[in-house]
Amino acid sequence: MTPEQKLTELGLTLPEVVKPVAAYVPAVRTGNLVYTSGQVPIVEGKPAATGKLGAEVSLEQGYEMARICALNGLAALKAEVGDLSKIVRIVKVVVFVASDPSFTDQPKVGNGASELLGEVLGEAGKHARSAVGVAALPLNVPVEVELIAEVA
């Protein structure tokens, strides 16, 4: 089953690539690696949620926002390489979580992105990861995710 077929089976659709909000491009390929810019939880041109984890945003909402970020990252990867089947492996995922100072469950938020990548890409979706708390993110979104993928 191709990753695109797996997305359909999961009831998901790749969105249009999120337009950059500043001076950068959504993804860059160098050799057999593709680096995505930070992907935020934009749905139909608007943030799906705003605020900080542990304050205005629950852990469950943060997990869902990380899934949206990963889906947006897959859209950026596909736009760069043409076909998600060309992904050999997701090498690294970095998850930034806008956090209230008392919030310490950044890894649980990051699982939203990691688990989506595993569901869609299977073994190729297993990756190294960092999940860090930050004071604020662009557009006041709660989560931002970067992907590094090895491609054929």
Rank of each mutant, 00 (worst) to 15 (best):
E56N: 02
E144C: 13
G112E: 07
K126S: 14
Y35M: 14
P107N: 11
L74I: 05
I42R: 05
L77Y: 09
Y24E: 05
A136C: 00
N140I: 00
K108T: 14
A66E: 11
A79Q: 04
R67L: 09
E9R: 12
L121P: 04
G45H: 01
F96Q: 13
P26V: 04
E150I: 06
V57D: 04
S99M: 04
A149I: 11
A136I: 05
G31T: 08
K6V: 10
V141F: 00
L77C: 06
K52M: 11
E144M: 12
Q61G: 04
G112Q: 09
P20F: 07
A48I: 06
T13Y: 03
G51D: 07
Q106V: 08
E16K: 13
D105Y: 11
V120M: 02
V143F: 03
V141K: 01
K92Y: 15
E146Q: 12
T8E: 15
A113I: 10
L77M: 09
D105E: 15
V28I: 15
F103S: 01
M65T: 07
A23I: 03
V143N: 08
N32R: 15
V109G: 10
A135R: 05
V34T: 06
L117V: 09
L116E: 07
A131H: 10
Q5M: 13
V40K: 07
G110Q: 13
A27L: 05
K52T: 04
M65G: 11
V18W: 02
P47M: 06
G125K: 08
L117K: 04
G122H: 10
M65D: 13
L77I: 15
K52S: 13
E16G: 03
T50N: 03
A136Q: 13
L121Y: 07
G122D: 09
K86S: 08
I148P: 01
K19C: 00
C69W: 08
A128N: 11
Y35G: 06
A55C: 00
S114G: 15
E146Y: 14
V132L: 15
S99W: 00
V88L: 11
L117P: 06
G31E: 13
K6I: 12
L147Q: 06
